[in-house]
Design a protein around this nucleic acid. Structure first.
Lengths: 238, 238
DNA sequence: AATAAAACGAGAGCACTGCTCTTGACTCGA
DNA sequence: TCGAGTCAAGAGCAGTGCTCTCGTTTTATT
């Protein structure tokens, strides 16, 4: 038995049991993701267990409850979406191109994973309180947008835009205080216009995925999204 | 027995049974609405029946399935929301005021009925296909917006706005064809800008209700919404 | 006014769910 | 080698949507 340790000491360092546990954990998540696409948010833990050939109570060794499984999936999805956005930005040159690439990167991921997008951007379960673990991955996309805008602003690539209508003073102070912690060099006016673009980006995708364009825009949805992103680009001064 | 008919002939015209059926139907919906606020979309038919003091199978005399109950609730909510928007517009004078009143009317209803708003504007159930009965009530809000814009346009109250970026030709033709059926006098450019405002309106409300502003905008959410609506008003040429 | 037909509420029952607890086998670390 | 911890399996509980049956009541017809 000791000889076993000698043959492959660093491989068993995390122990066999820990390794198989990690494998099974991600296998459960993979099966759950697959079932999510057909069943939606009302995911059945027992069905996941059944597909994996184990009994339902065994799954509870890996996820203490169904909500915890969903939370794990949510975190994974946030990270995938954030990575998709980051990669898209990195692969483009120039402010406008990077912004458009970001938007289409987010949209492409959403179209490829509609159930997952609905899970993270759809209706929250009334009782469900988003755990602290989710806020980091969830903020990756917004961080990309803000970074893009601040970089463009500091590089002088953003045209000064119309400041009308003015921000109400209470709103301005609250936004000033919120952005000071992260990007103190960002003007509040730019933040406000960036938030318009942010809402528009996810608003269009959500409407498209949730069927609000049905019987209205059918063929040219990508064109519509692209156009809206260009409108928003102008709005922020690109 | 016949004397009964003679005493109140027109009262029993819709028959006793039909009347009590109608009452029970709306009573079931009322209880379901109340449970919706605490339980969310996973509404329990049995719990509704329990609260009404009847057995679960009796509810099936009134709604053939749980989905049909939810559909009935969805239709009611669409109508309430549409009516809230229409009333708000009627109670205001002038194009900008009417637009702002509409926005706040929608938002106020959403804040007062978050679960109901999530039901109609949240993630659709993957299998759930929206019945034809819902599209009419669902389109009341968009009709208000388009009417407002067309009236303002025909009255010459809308400034001509920048047509950049231009619409891609395939998108323009599809939008032209779609709007021709309802408002042929509406320019496509105005429709596009109106859709931007439409998406922004519901996008901000959805983000606010679904917690996207948490730890960022807390006190001035109404101000933020109002500001966004004014930005959109400028965008469409008000 | 009597009778057939339809609608109704109650109850039992089925297959399913999330979750808990116990039992016996297995693996780990000392 | 041997306790301690981990694991899969199974039984079980309370809850779910939904179906079916069975008497009762109301409606519509003759």
């Amino acid at each position: 038995m000791l000889s076993f340790y000698c043959y492959a000491p660093e491989m068993t360092a995390p122990s066999i049991r820990a390794r198989v546990r990690e494998e099974l954990t991600s296998e459960i998540k993979a099966v759950a993701r697959r079932q999510l696409t057909t069943e939606g948010a009302n995911l059945s833990l027992r069905a996941v267990a059944r597909e994996l050939g184990m009994v339902s109570s065994a799954v509870y060794r890996y996820f203490p409850s169904r909500d915890d499984l969903l939370t794990a999936l949510i975190i994974d999805c946030y990270n995938e979406l954030g990575e998709a956005g980051e990669k898209a930005v990195e692969g483009a040159e120039g402010l406008l191109s990077r912004w458009l690439a970001f938007g289409h990167g987010i949209r492409d991921w959403a179209l490829a994973h509609p159930a997952e997008y609905a899970l993270i951007y759809g209706s929250p379960v009334p009782g469900y309180k988003a755990p602290q673990d989710t806020v980091g991955p969830a903020s990756r996309t917004t961080t990309v947008i803000v970074k893009l805008l601040v970089e463009g602003y500091l590089a002088g690539e953003l045209k000064g835009t119309d400041e009308r209508p003015p921000l109400p003073p209470p709103l301005e102070t609250e936004m000033r205080r919120a952005i000071n912690e992260i990007f103190p060099e960002m003007p509040v006016g730019l933040l406000a216009r960036g938030m318009t673009a942010w809402v528009q980006l996810f608003g269009v995708i959500t409407f498209e995925l949730f069927g609000r364009f049905n019987n209205f825009i059918e063929e040219s949805r990508r064109d519509f999204f692209d156009h809206q992103m260009r409108v928003m680009a102008r709005h922020v001064g690109m």
